[in-house]
Design a binder for these strands. Structure first.
Lengths: 195, 195
DNA sequence: GACCGAATTCATCATGTGTTGAATAATGCG
DNA sequence: CGCATTATTCAACACATGATGAATTCGGTC
């Protein structure tokens, strides 16, 4: 049995990546304040000090863990932008594609959890809304993008919470087509219906 | 009965109530783990030990703060149950009525925040779903109440998050009629539309 | 083989947490 | 008044947390 070995490890294990992965999982599961550096270090099989060595403070770890393998704006520009007709379905399919990718979901979950913690409103108003939602609305060419995209968000976030945070079985059980059938009409209504 | 109790009676101003109110506000704002007993005591202008004196551990404080001035099932039974036609509007108006009551909102917010924290899925599956959602669906006489009510919940929770947690301005600005106009058709579709 | 830098751990600090028990002040009853 | 009872605070404990700096070990380079 290996006694606790001090000093550098043999071979070239990518410890940094292990820490990042553990941090993503923890942040996704427990949010920012609910995640402890010691727990992350434990999951990665590593001393807490090493976490600080690679990423500085806890805040820095968080933004590092948030670095998405995907740029949401690129995904939206490629898969969603286009005519308003069918925009709801395209949005849903892009959303599901990204969220069901296990490499990306933890980071997204962490962001959603952060949205609910104190200061989350600022994150929404200062980040999510102007950076993602409104530009998307404008790219789709809808009128009153602020209002309509907030309506859209109110449905999308509900789906995300029930499917990925709270894991309500009926919503989890739906595949992409079922989700589109249920929600695309709603989103289309928010995008193009009467206000 | 009990012998005549001698001695000091109750706090001068009702300190107990002050603590409860402070606790409700903090739990609503920051969730369970994000709320510290010292902060509650500080808000109530009181020593932390007094909080323990009145309510025992932090868990007990939380359940005491959660005690709603309203029984959600009673509200639903009175204002929502009825024919499926118009159920969406009735549900929305009841919801808004309860959530916009400043005496109740903090406790509700605290519950929603708890739903997002670790273990929130259990709270949903073991509490909210079987105690509130499914009975309501059955009382409305819809088919497949589990599925339909989870769809309803996915929209309702989205509205709650955007309006009360994240306070998205466009959603906050809507009055009851505007909310009904926007969301009642969606809910009716989930309750009675095709699956 | 010597040496430098990177990887890793250890011991430790300062702080904030929930909680406890004793101590003091106020109140009401006989 | 004096006593019982409650309200309230003080001081402190035990623990977890984020963070730091020194120490140790390894990998690669001259």
């Amino acid at each position: 049995m290996t006694a606790p070995v001090r000093g550098r490890r043999r071979g070239r294990p990518d410890t940094r990546a292990a820490i990042l992965e553990a941090a993503r999982a923890r942040f996704a599961e427990a949010g920012f304040t609910g995640t402890t550096i010691r727990a992350v270090a434990g999951d990665a099989g590593v001393d807490p000090a090493l976490v600080h060595h690679y990423f500085g403070a806890k805040d820095d770890l968080f933004v590092a863990a948030l670095e998405l393998p995907v740029d949401p704006r690129a995904v939206l520009a490629e898969q969603v932008v286009g005519p308003v007709e069918g925009a709801g379905e395209r949005l849903l399919r892009a959303l599901i594609g990204v969220w069901d990718d296990p490499a990306v979901r933890p980071a997204l979950l962490a962001m959603v959890r952060r949205l609910m913690e104190p200061g989350g409103d600022a994150l929404f108003r200062g980040g999510f809304l102007p950076v993602v939602l409104v530009p998307l609305g404008e790219a789709l060419g809808v009128d009153a993008p602020e209002r309509r995209m907030q309506l859209v968000a109110s449905q999308v976030i509900g789906v995300i919470v029930l499917r990925y945070v709270v894991r309500a079985d009926a919503i989890v059980a739906m595949d992409a087509d079922a989700l589109v059938a249920a929600y695309a009409p709603v989103l289309d209504g928010f995008l193009a219906g009467p206000l």
